[in-house]
Amino acid sequence: MSFTLATWNINSVRLREELVLKLLSEEAPDVLCLQECKSPVDKIPLEGFQALGYNHIVARGQKGYNGVAIISRLPMVEAGAEDYASLGHARHIAGRLENGVTIHNHYVPAGGDVPDRAVNDKFGNKLDYLTEMRDAFHADKPSKSILVGDLNIAPREDDVWSHKKLLKVVSHTPIEVEHFGEVMDAGGWSDVTRNDIPDGLLYSWWSYRARDWDAADKGRRLDHVWATPDIASAGHSSRIVRTARGWEKPSDHAPVFATFDL
């Protein structure tokens, strides 16, 4: 079985329903994981997705904030949802395909603007969320699993437009990168995107603040596709659909794709 998966922080699934439909029509992933849906589950606009053959969904939602969903044209059942750091936020949902692969979709807290938990509770929440992810993977080693989402950390020097200038900017600080690495190590996760594209600058997010985001190209790779060691070698054909960042009224994130032969 071969299937293609995409992950995308959509920044409101209701506001950007047409963009989701455009991606599904033009790129046709078998599974699409969305973050920051900003919608209760019963308000997610499913009709258009279903018309394109995406008849399966698992989701967690809340009004106006956060929210995660996995829509699929492959049969899928819900496989749990975690509330790491006990924030009461809709930040994780898991779905299991018929081939036994579990897909975890995460929206890790952004962490606010100041990288100091003593003065910024949001940064503390982010570190706590990552710590609980790490501990959960230590306690229950995942297998035959894929983890995707907006993890809100660009870990490598070539995952940001300027390593030196962003060392004190939330998403690329050493303590965040350290926590990110501990989560990966705890689950034995493999970075599928960088396995496929090992070298060079690679971004999935560009700020709305840039007058011309494309020309300035001050991006960060905040969106990730991981796999457990037992299936990591089955992942291939990774790519970031950068053009989606230039669509009308876009999300500030671009979709990240990978294909798995399982």
Rank of each mutant, 00 (worst) to 15 (best):
L166Q: 09
P115K: 00
M133Y: 14
D159V: 10
H163I: 05
N125K: 15
K144C: 11
F123E: 09
E132P: 05
P142I: 02
L151M: 14
P142Q: 02
N120V: 04
D116F: 00
D158Q: 12
A118N: 12
A154T: 09
A118R: 09
D121P: 06
L166D: 04
N120T: 03
D158P: 00
R117F: 06
V160Q: 03
A118C: 00
S145N: 12
G149I: 02
T131S: 10
D128E: 15
K122H: 04
N152V: 12
R117D: 07
G124N: 11
R117A: 10
L130K: 00
T131I: 09
S145Q: 15
V119W: 04
L167N: 04
P142F: 01
M133N: 05
D135Y: 03
N120G: 07
I153Q: 13
A136M: 08
D140K: 15
K168D: 12
A154E: 10
F137M: 15
V114D: 06
R117P: 13
E157M: 07
D128F: 05
F137A: 12
A154S: 13
D150Q: 03
D140S: 13
A136W: 06
H138V: 14
R117C: 03
S162D: 04
H138R: 15
S143R: 05
D158N: 11
D159I: 08
D135R: 11
K126I: 09
R117H: 13
D128W: 05
S143D: 12
L127C: 08
I146L: 13
W161S: 14
P142S: 03
H163L: 09
K164H: 05
D135W: 02
G124E: 06
K144S: 14
M133F: 15
D158S: 11
L151P: 07
S145C: 14
G149P: 00
R117N: 07
W161F: 15
A139T: 02
D121E: 14
K122W: 05
D158H: 05
A118M: 03
K164C: 01
V119Q: 01
H138N: 13
N152D: 09
N125F: 01
V119T: 07
K126E: 06
G149K: 02
P115D: 01
V148R: 04
H138E: 14
T131N: 08
Y129T: 11
E157F: 07
F123H: 08
G149Q: 03
K141D: 01
L166F: 07
D150P: 01
V119S: 04
L147V: 15
K126V: 10
S143T: 12
I146R: 10
V160M: 05
G124V: 11
K144Y: 06
N152E: 08
F137V: 05
F137P: 14
N120Y: 12
K164L: 06
D158K: 08
L127G: 06
L167D: 01
F123N: 08
D150Y: 10
R134M: 11
G124I: 08
F137G: 09
E132H: 05
V148I: 09
V148M: 06
A139H: 03
L167M: 10
I153A: 12
P115C: 00
D128C: 11
D159L: 10
W161R: 12
D121H: 15
P142K: 06
V148S: 03
D135T: 07
L167H: 05
G124K: 09
H163Q: 11
V114R: 00
K164G: 00
S143K: 07
D140M: 09
V160D: 01
